[in-house]
Amino acid sequence: MKFEGKMVLNSRREDVWNFISEPSKVIECVPGLEEYSVEEGKRVTAKVKVSIGFIKGTFRASSSVVKEDHQNYTAKLKLSGSGVGSGFDALVDLKLNELEYGTEFIWLADVNVSGPLGSLAKPMLEGYVRKIVDQLFDCIKRKLTNSTI
């Protein structure tokens, strides 16, 4: 399943880049985060609470940087994890474009979900992913504004 989205942030591209290059900063914005640790090579493992409809549970997930290109402000991440009898993986492409008054953040994710969530929740996953991404960006926005002022 492929999802994509765009978001305009009120900060300079360099600031955004620096922020998202810091795994511990981004991870703290993940909704439902219970615990995390950052390992070498920006690999992050975390425990995240999810609730999809009335299904509730904890996912153990990890993310690692596949590619990082500061010059072009692009990056590729791989996420994977498992929980509530299900598993997922996702490849996420990120790109930052410089705007006159800020930065455009473009993302594209290719997500595969297996297990009960895969069988049951496929049609609703898009909405769910959007919700999470929205929350994530809101938080990033907030933190960026706080830190740059």
Binding site: G87, N112, G118, S119
Partner: peptide, 14 residues
């Protein structure tokens, strides 16, 4: 099986 090698129907429902 799905594309990640998981069994999609490990139950007598599916």
């Amino acid at each position: 099986f799905d594309e990640r090698g998981w069994v999609v129907n490990p139950n007598f429902t599916n």
